[in-house]
Measured scan of single mutants.
Amino acid sequence: SLEGTEKASWLGEQPQFWSKTQVLDWISYQVEKNKYDASAIDFSRCDMDGATLCNCALEELRLVFGPLGDQLHAQLRDLTSS
């Protein structure tokens, strides 16, 4: 749920159509929501749009996002199937 936050830029759009900015917004949101240590994320490797993100295998997401990769992968699957 997104109570208390302004409507996120990526909400209501299919992930494969996200811009690079929307991807970063979504990642930041997941980091906050999961109380994850953002210093463990290599943000220089997050410079990708939604289509690229959706094409990432779980292993790739783990490389870039560490333990949060599993969470991101699961969330993406939910978003693309809805």
Rank of each mutant, 00 (worst) to 15 (best):
D25K: 03
A57R: 09
S1K: 14
D49V: 04
C56W: 08
T80R: 07
S19A: 03
S1R: 04
R45C: 03
H73D: 12
A40R: 14
E60T: 08
E6L: 11
K35E: 09
G50R: 00
F65P: 00
F65Y: 05
S44Y: 07
L58H: 07
A38E: 12
S28V: 12
Y36L: 10
W10F: 08
A38W: 10
K7V: 09
L53Y: 01
E3T: 08
R77F: 04
L58S: 11
E13Q: 08
P15M: 05
T21K: 07
C54A: 10
Y29I: 05
R62S: 10
A57N: 15
L76P: 00
G69I: 02
Q22I: 15
N34I: 05
H73F: 06
K35W: 09
N34G: 07
G50K: 01
Y36S: 07
S82L: 09
Q16L: 07
L79S: 10
T52L: 06
Q16E: 13
G69E: 00
Q22A: 11
S19H: 04
V23N: 02
T80F: 01
D78M: 05
D37I: 03
L58F: 12
C56T: 11
C46F: 14
E6F: 09
Q14M: 06
E59V: 04
D70P: 13
V23C: 03
A74Q: 06
L11R: 07
V31P: 00
P67Q: 07
Q71F: 11
L68E: 02
T52H: 06
L11P: 13
L11W: 09
G50V: 00
A40I: 08
E13C: 14
T5M: 07
E6G: 10
T21E: 11
D47V: 11
S39G: 13
E13T: 14
D25A: 09
P15F: 02
E3A: 06
Q71Y: 12
T52V: 09
P67R: 12
D49R: 01
D49T: 15
K33S: 09
D49I: 03
G66I: 00
G50H: 00
I27M: 03
K20N: 14
K35Y: 12
L76T: 01
L79F: 13
Y29P: 00
D47G: 08
G4A: 06
S9P: 04
S28L: 13
F65D: 01
G4R: 12
C54G: 04
S81K: 03
R62D: 06
L68Q: 04
E13R: 10
L63M: 14
G69H: 01
T21S: 15
S82T: 11
A74P: 06
R77K: 03
W26I: 00
L53R: 00
A51R: 13
E3R: 09
L11K: 12
Q75R: 10
L68D: 02
D47R: 13
L63N: 09
C56D: 01
A74N: 02
P67C: 08
F43M: 14
V31I: 14
W10K: 03
M48L: 11
C46S: 09
D47Y: 13
S44D: 09
S19K: 06
D78Q: 13
V23P: 00
A74E: 06
L68N: 04
L53G: 01
W10L: 04
K33F: 05
V31S: 10
E13S: 13
Q14L: 11
L61Y: 05
V31R: 06
K7S: 15
L76I: 15
R77Q: 09
K20I: 03
A40M: 12
D78Y: 09
P67V: 11
T5W: 13
S39I: 10
G12W: 15
D47T: 14
G4K: 12
G69F: 02
L79Y: 13
W10V: 05
F65E: 00
S9C: 12
D70I: 15
E32C: 03
S9H: 05
L11I: 12
S81G: 11
D37N: 12
E13V: 12
A51S: 09
F65I: 06
A51K: 13
V31Q: 03
W26F: 01
S9W: 05
C56I: 12
I41S: 04
Q71H: 07
G69N: 01
L24G: 11
E6A: 12
Y29H: 14
Q30H: 15
S39W: 08
Q71G: 07
L79Q: 11
F43C: 13
Y29F: 04
S19R: 04
F43K: 12
T5H: 04
D47K: 09
L58G: 09
A40Y: 15
F17C: 06
E32V: 06
Q14W: 08
S39F: 02
Q16A: 06
E60R: 07
S81F: 03
D37W: 03
A74S: 14
E59T: 15
N55C: 11
M48H: 01
A57D: 04
S9I: 05
N55A: 12
L53K: 01
S82R: 10
R77T: 10
G50F: 01
E13M: 15
V64Y: 07
Q71T: 13
S19Y: 02
L58V: 08
L72S: 00
E3W: 03
D49K: 08
L2S: 11
D78G: 14
L53I: 09
N55R: 10
C54W: 10
M48S: 01
F43V: 07
A38T: 10
D70E: 13
E6W: 12
S82G: 15
C56H: 04
S39P: 07
P67I: 07
G4L: 08
L2T: 06
M48Q: 02
D78K: 09
S81D: 03
L61K: 02
Q75E: 10
P67Y: 11
L24E: 08
T80M: 09
T52R: 11
A8L: 05
A57L: 10
D25N: 06
A38V: 09
Q22V: 06
Q14C: 14
L79K: 05
C54R: 04
Q71C: 15
K7N: 14
L61G: 00
S81C: 06
D47W: 04
K33V: 13
E59D: 04
A74D: 09
E6Y: 11
F43Q: 03
Q16C: 09
D25P: 00
L2M: 15
A8C: 15
D47Q: 08
T5I: 14
L63G: 12
E3Q: 03
L11D: 08
T80L: 14
C54S: 08
Q71M: 08
S19C: 14
T5K: 05
R77G: 11
D78E: 07
S44L: 11
T5P: 13
L24D: 01
C46L: 12
C54M: 13
E6N: 11
D70Y: 07
E59M: 08
Q75G: 14
T52S: 12
V31H: 02
K33Q: 12
S28N: 08
W18S: 00
F43I: 06
L11G: 10
A40C: 09
A8P: 10
Q75A: 15
Q14D: 13
A51N: 10
Q16V: 04
S19D: 06
L79C: 04
E59I: 01
E59P: 09
I41M: 03
A38P: 07
E60A: 02
K7G: 13
Y36P: 05
K33A: 09
F43R: 12
A38M: 06
C54T: 12
L53Q: 00
C56K: 10
L53F: 08
L2P: 04
D70W: 02
L68R: 02
Y36K: 05
W26G: 00
E59C: 05
S81M: 15
S44P: 08
G12E: 13
N34F: 13
M48E: 00
D70F: 06
Q16P: 06
T80A: 03
K33W: 10
Y29T: 08
L79R: 14
K20H: 05
F43P: 03
K35F: 13
F17Y: 13
T21Q: 15
F43E: 07
K35I: 03
R77N: 14
R62L: 13
Q75I: 12
H73V: 07
I41F: 05
P15R: 00
C46E: 07
G12L: 08
A8E: 10
D42T: 10
D70N: 11
D49M: 01
H73P: 02
F65L: 06
K20T: 05
E13W: 06
